[in-house]
Amino acid sequence: MVNDKVTVSNIIEIRNLSFGYKYHDPIIDGVSLDIPRGRFIGLLGPSGAGKTTLLKLILGLNKPWNGNIKFRKKNDRDKTKEFPSIGYSPQAESVDWDFPITVTELVSMGLWNSSGVFPWINNNTKKRIRILLDELEIGKYHNRQIRELSGGEQKRVFLARALINNPDILILDEPTSGLDPLSRENIIQKLIEINNSGITIMITTHDIDGVAKKIPWVICLNRQIVSQGNPNVILSENTIYKTYGLKE
């Protein structure tokens, strides 16, 4: 079962956001968007539609031309955090898979500022990582080099790094790209489980049938928001044509 119940409050509010890599050619053009706490959102669109760019704007990796992004606390009494904690995983294409690093070492990066000053990983952190890896069914690979794993296993390792600091929101760029149908299905099911535990999730995808239709809430993006809602309702031929820039 997917978690379609979300709390009323928004975790992120985006207003009139614009950004581009070239002058007068915005790749994000006046986007306004509310991301309710606890929702599982899929950003759907073709390559070059601005999906990754929108994520990078939310993450603060790009500075917008116009508009603003506000992060909301759970409630006014919540004085613990200024911003929600974020778990992020980049596109697989941006990763150097030959980098000499083990699964445990990679996941420990998510705890770089809370696992002590020494360069080695302490036992408590190791235990915490192992428990999470076991939950994601990759515990037996904890000492393996990342390049020795399959595509699906590698995605889970990055998911583990994003989850290890107990984030309020999980932002994953193309977490299912390049996977076979079974691995893709496993990742989506795992994300649904994570979302059911209360974590807000935002992922990008260009896969309509394999991914978007299995997510509770889809935002169709092509520089602007074309449509958003339950995929079974909004993913009409007309919306898909508009999103993918095809003629009707």
Binding site: I86, S94, F99, P119
Partner: peptide, 21 residues
């Protein structure tokens, strides 16, 4: 010694390292 975690994270995955502060 004291910057190893930071250096490794930055070298391996600069964007994510930025997101993580």
């Amino acid at each position: 010694f004291f910057y190893q975690k930071i250096l490794l994270f930055t070298i391996f995955d600069t964007d994510t390292a930025k997101v993580y502060g």
